[in-house]
Amino acid sequence: MRPPTRLARAGGALLLAAALSGSLGGCLSAYLGTAPEENSPTAPPSAPPGPRTTAPTGAAAVTAAVTVTIGNFLFQPANFTVRPGGTVTVVNGDTVEHTLTAQDRTFGTPPIAPGASATFTAPAQRGDYAYLCTFHHFMRGILTVA
């Protein structure tokens, strides 16, 4: 008996791929549902993405005081806006100490124990200030003074 030729092996591989494709396709469509046909009259037309809604950028969006809560090694909110000289209160809801400190060290809190809070005054100069936790450098955010 002769060994199979390359063509016979390729045909077997194609047959196997076709069989797997059919069975996997059935499994996936059962899990994900079936996709509507492109030319189907019942398929809803795809609409271009609309504009994103964002918070107002005027004076109504800027507050004199903001509270940032720390939990699960995250600042909530991580990015926030406050008026020049506004008050920022940081509440540590985590199980370890944290800080909220400007990367350039122009503002920040001392270490805040679990369950405690600290307050600082936002810079008087308008702009974006990157900050982090000095103990956990992966914890980051941006304070915007506007």
Rank of each mutant, 00 (worst) to 15 (best):
L15I: 05
L16N: 01
L16V: 12
A17R: 01
L20E: 04
S21R: 06
S21M: 08
S23E: 12
G25F: 11
G26H: 09
C27W: 10
C27H: 05
A30R: 07
A30N: 04
L32Y: 15
G33T: 08
T34H: 07
P36G: 12
E37V: 12
E38P: 11
N39H: 13
S40H: 08
S40D: 15
T42Y: 14
T42K: 07
A43K: 11
A43P: 08
P44T: 10
P44A: 13
P45W: 00
S46I: 13
P48N: 11
P49K: 12
P49A: 15
P49G: 12
G50T: 15
P51D: 10
R52D: 06
T53A: 14
T53V: 15
T54G: 14
T54D: 10
P56G: 14
T57N: 09
G58S: 03
A60L: 13
A60K: 03
A60Y: 03
A61G: 15
V62D: 07
A64N: 14
A65D: 05
T67H: 04
V68R: 02
V68F: 06
N72G: 14
N72S: 15
F73M: 15
F73T: 03
L74P: 00
P77N: 05
P77F: 05
N79H: 10
N79S: 09
T81S: 15
V82P: 10
P84N: 01
G86D: 12
G86A: 13
V91I: 09
N92D: 09
N92G: 04
N92V: 08
N92Y: 01
G93T: 09
G93W: 02
D94V: 04
V96K: 03
E97K: 12
E97Q: 15
E97W: 05
T99E: 06
T101K: 11
T101H: 11
A102F: 03
D104G: 07
T106G: 14
T106Y: 02
T106K: 13
T106L: 10
F107T: 05
G108Y: 07
G108K: 04
T109Q: 02
P110A: 15
P111G: 08
I112K: 01
P114C: 08
G115Y: 00
G115L: 05
A116T: 07
A116M: 12
A116H: 06
S117P: 00
T121C: 11
A122I: 10
P123M: 00
A124M: 10
R126Q: 15
R126I: 04
G127M: 02
G127D: 09
D128L: 02
D128H: 00
A130Y: 04
C133K: 01
F135H: 05
H136F: 13
H137L: 14
I142W: 02
I142M: 03
L143I: 08
T144Q: 11
V145R: 13
A146L: 11
